[in-house]
Design a protein around this nucleic acid. Structure first.
Lengths: 173, 173, 173, 173
DNA sequence: TTTT
DNA sequence: TTTT
């Protein structure tokens, strides 16, 4: 059984970091991937692909990426279903990102992490990480004592490759 | 922009061949891909991934594959939206199969193509193709004069790689 | 930076398990992948792709797979160079398998692990693992006290996803 | 049989366009892909992956990309062997690029195609193509009457997906 | 040095 | 609405 996806495209919105009840960081986002061919009207269309990232990847997305950022995703397709508001079963499919690559040139990224609330002039990153999310995993404090982050009830059971670069502190299992 | 998917899994149903108004063969099917890890209850779950194949790939699926068959898919994620019956916009994502590999051992496949209606004892394939769909493209007659095949209104705009191994006869553009 | 490979093909030989000086299991093997197209002489050629697997994957390959077995590989391309016997620099590229899928139907696999030395009639697996390597990681004893396994000097620096399903015992770092 | 590779990395040199005896454009190049993990000395290494592109892709590489350019490759691994100068068989593996994506921001690319011979100040592209190689196939004149381009004896039998976006003029078969 |  |  193999399930592998690679995407390169652009974020359709500023990513928004949330946390599960267990405090695990999670970001849902959409990647727009322009098709390499045109339709019968000669137009270039795009696919808008729902993705989810967990933990460090989620934090990096929220801290460093913005609407329009070019990203590379290596992950797998995940399907699930839940009860809709109207009582009907809703089926959804999304890409779980094992890794997220930041493909913007550094200059386009700004010199500081982006904090969700505009913090462009801030001289300190909101979490105590390094300033370089490009490829090298970097440490960040778990949000244990943050008063009002957003909780997510979704179970954060993540990648087949597991929570490899995460300190054990923020793992709920 | 890159959009690449590789899947290996099993068909959840016998594939059913349809045709667009232009006579282009199309098969929609679901591939069950077992996850390589277990959930917190220790169970192996699966992802049920919607796929679509066109032309020769669609015919091969319908002629040679059945519920439970192991297949390899190389394709791309495609998203689209349409008006639901209740007037609400429905978003869907599916994998467009550029190529479909038949991974069952030959013995498991039977000696003849499968015609949709059980035709196991038939001495002739329903369409005039060769008997070997494994990897080598094989010719098959377009369904021009078949009286009551199923039509599909969906626009058959296909793969970025295009109708490469298809005789020009069955191309609507 | 993205580096992703997916292969489905057949082993050209019985895989042979070796160990690094630190006792880490490693198997090098070649996967023959038939091309989906023919050359100008109308022949189907194949690519013979060098691969390497570490730890549990290496053990599973050696215990359960044989020449001709159909496998799925999810991994990355790795290049390296070393001094050849003639003093010239030799460049090599191989696929590091993050995961190895066993795509043979169970019947084709036999009921017991394969021990390298023909052990078809053996009633016990050579290592104390479960009998099912298909997807679920299974325990096996590290070869600590085995007197004469083969050593490999190659540094076993493994997958980008890391030694996830390995007991810390057999990790050299 | 599946053989799929996706790479995102940087060109190690300015790509150089050549032609087969049949006049088919071909470019060989190396992509440096930084690993996402560090070795035991804490250093980030890279893989240097040999690639080859044909026809339009080859022309685009030569015209628009330079040493250091960020590219995305979607292709397959190809192995081959030939007689070395010392009479010994040499085995080689390279990635055949089905598609090449140009991931540099437009500003980094310059406003004109790059002609191999420094033509930065040139007001006309060397071949009569459009100025935008980003995703949309663009026309270019075949080098029919160019007196002294470089020939390559290698057989240009290309991708499994075939010469889809190539005018029939420059196809040798 | 190659597999079905 | 799911496969082995």
């Amino acid at each position: 059984m193999i399930n592998r996806v690679v995407l390169v495209g652009r974020l359709t919105k500023d990513p928004e970091l949330r946390y599960t009840p267990n405090g695990v960081p999670v970001t849902r986002f959409t990647v727009a991937v322009n098709r390499t061919f045109t339709n019968q009207q000669g137009e270039r269309e795009a696919d808008f692909i729902s993705c989810v990232a967990w933990r460090k990847q989620a934090e990096n997305l929220a801290n460093y990426m913005r609407k329009g950022s070019l990203v590379g995703i290596d992950g797998r397709i995940q399907t699930s279903s839940f009860e809709g508001q109207d009582g009907k079963r809703v089926y959804m499919t999304e890409v779980v990102a094992d890794s997220v690559q930041f493909l913007e040139p550094r200059s386009a990224q700004g010199q500081q992490p982006y904090g969700g609330q505009p913090s462009y002039g801030a001289s300190q990153p909101p979490y105590g990480g390094t300033q370089d999310p490009f490829g090298v995993p970097f440490p960040s404090q778990p949000p244990q004592n943050q008063p009002n982050y957003t909780r997510v009830d979704e179970d954060p059971f993540a990648s087949s490759k597991g929570p490899i670069e995460v300190s054990e502190d923020d793992l709920p299992f």
